[in-house]
Design a protein around this nucleic acid. Structure first.
Lengths: 118, 118
DNA sequence: AGCGCGTGCTTGGTATACTTAGCAGACAAG
DNA sequence: CTTGTCTGCTAAGTATACCAAGCACGCGCT
């Protein structure tokens, strides 16, 4: 994972700073709302550090934007939306189901894949 | 988030482990796909560490699920991301699937409802 | 001349995410 | 039996996200 160049997520800091200034908040004000320290927010805005997901979420909430928007800006969402079709929707729904045991999921997967074999 | 909530991460590791076993992958196999070390994946699955967002995304990709799904399970997506109506999700996904015949959909519905009857 | 309060930034440290090297058990084949 | 190769896990280290304390400036007031 370790991205070695600093550029890519530097845009995130600029984005946060822009949003903060747009909301007319000081570094300290926003940092307090987001429950992070003010020097750290300053460093994040200048691209020195890559904030973790929960910090991002916290900042997003303080700025009244959705966490997904923030993750998108951070480049943490933009992955392979390769196959958006029904196969993955069914399989994803099964996998996510909290009521099924692993064996039951396995069974449904095998049946489903058997059906969709062509 | 240095706040007081320290432990509530319970489910994520178990979730990842369940998904990995569902995909019939070893710790080493998945860790290689996700480009993380195998002991670290092991520790994550046992709830010892809280993986960062990009690691989560990487694992999600390796498991062929969307990053948002993974974030949702990790509790990193904004709270209103309720997953408790997974039932409807599975049933809806099956109904909408264009690859299944009516009889096949019926079969999966019966099996699914049989599983979730308690 | 101060003083007080605001701004953002630097320093130095701690906590934790993450890695590399290696261990012990299970199973298969020679 | 030994040897090789899986499995997951432990131990010990490195890298970095994050915090507390403090610095340097600017602005308004007395």
């Amino acid at each position: 994972m370790r991205s070695k160049d600093e550029g890519p997520w530097k845009g995130l800091g600029e984005f946060i700073r822009a949003q903060r200034e747009l909301a007319k908040l000081s570094v300290r004000q926003l940092s307090e709302m987001a429950k992070i320290s003010n020097p750290y927010l300053s460093q994040v805005e200048r691209g020195l550090y890559k904030p973790s997901a929960d910090v991002l979420k916290s900042i997003a909430n303080a700025l009244q934007m959705s966490a997904e928007t923030m993750y998108g800006q951070a480049g943490l969402l933009d992955d392979d939306e390769t196959v958006d079709d029904a196969i993955n929707r069914v399989e994803a729904a099964i996998k996510l189901d909290t009521q099924l045991t692993t064996e039951q999921k396995d069974t449904m997967m095998r049946i489903y894949r058997g059906f969709t074999q062509r």
